[in-house]
Design a protein around this nucleic acid. Structure first.
Lengths: 190, 190
DNA sequence: CAAGGTTTTGTCAATCATGACAATATGCCT
DNA sequence: AGGCATATTGTCATGATTGACAAAACCTTG
């Protein structure tokens, strides 16, 4: 979309905050109002691929074999994700102060909430006795998401880590979670 | 504060969304800009007591006996909270459609994040070997917060529950968490 | 091609929110 | 009281965001 390109170019040239939504619209040859019909907010241009990524994750999760333990499924889906180098570069740019940290954290919270919801849905579909266990399911889904994002934020707080390090940390976190859930004999798939 | 009173009155009289920030400022005899110096946003008037509540929780947590298991401390702090009838009434008003559910959820996320942070800080202070366990600590704190708020939202989704029911649900959730953490021998206080 | 319906865009007008700087008020010191 | 230092408020200007409704573009079918 033209708006997307215009925004990306302007952001790169003069920074995100120094670029007004109106400039973007103008450069793309449309009205300001039209810009806001395509993106819920100026900053959402940066996270435009997000929805498709979320869909990808949902499908990957749904495609896991039936008997697999939950945490293993989540792990598999997360690590199979076709990470977009572009997106990662963008994230790196954020860390380099292009963007208010508050905003990044805010966005991460949304992503975390969506991840949690995806896991919850997955469980609702897979568990035989889902109906009577809504609370267990919600708590489990959210805890897993919280643990993963906690891990990511601990990782982000240190400056000298590679993506591989993050993967290692995530694995460790997931292992611990799996042990905890397993002990209670909970959350194996149908 | 006069602003607070003005806002509350107007909100009650004509609803939150139908009240503009300017009206509030005017009724309180100040400028719009001044209103925004006292409240970060129009809706934050509704959550004005929030900070003091958070402080209360932090202190309650810090005051728990040294050897107590983490989950027990969190439980004790939460259930000892001097719940403000006013605030609960307000929450009821929210549920009665005064306010966009999105906004309520957004606020809950902030509260959840703060609760998680409070727990994390508590652990940092109490654990002997906190230095080398940042990841464990963050993951634990966030998981507990996520579980509690997941419980609350499951509760909120049903219309026929009492506050006592919420308390029961929370207890059950905390018990499960405690069992899980205990199994791994983690997170006992110094 | 034309009529009629659907989708997308433009226009207009509010409101929300915030930075910069001037004007004022307030408390405290002598 | 007089006068500075600090905190609070007013003014002005700009940008973000959104609802309502008109106008234009596009599509489908006869």
């Amino acid at each position: 979309m033209a708006l997307r390109r215009a925004a990306t170019e302007l952001f790169a040239a003069q920074g995100v905050e120094a670029t007004s939504a109106e400039q973007i619209a103008e450069r793309a040859g449309v009205t300001l109002r039209t810009f806001y019909r395509h993106f819920p907010s100026k900053h959402d241009v940066l996270f435009a691929d997000y929805d498709s990524g979320l869909q990808w994750f949902r499908k990957a999760l749904a495609a896991r074999p039936a008997g697999e333990p939950l945490v293993a499924s989540v792990r598999a889906a997360i690590f199979a994700f076709p990470y977009d180098v572009q997106a990662i570069t963008q994230m790196a740019a954020f860390r380099a102060e292009q963007l208010d940290p508050e905003r990044i954290v805010g966005h991460l919270r949304l992503v975390e909430a969506d991840l949690a919801e995806a896991i919850v849905e997955h469980l609702e579909h897979r568990l035989e006795d889902a109906a009577g266990r809504r609370l267990d399911i919600v708590v489990t889904g959210r805890s897993i998401a919280a643990a993963l994002f906690g891990t990511m934020e601990v990782w982000m707080a240190a400056d000298d880590r590679s993506l591989g390090d993050l993967a290692d940390l995530s694995h460790a976190t997931l292992d611990a979670l799996e042990a905890g859930l397993d002990e209670q004999g909970m959350f194996r798939h149908r």
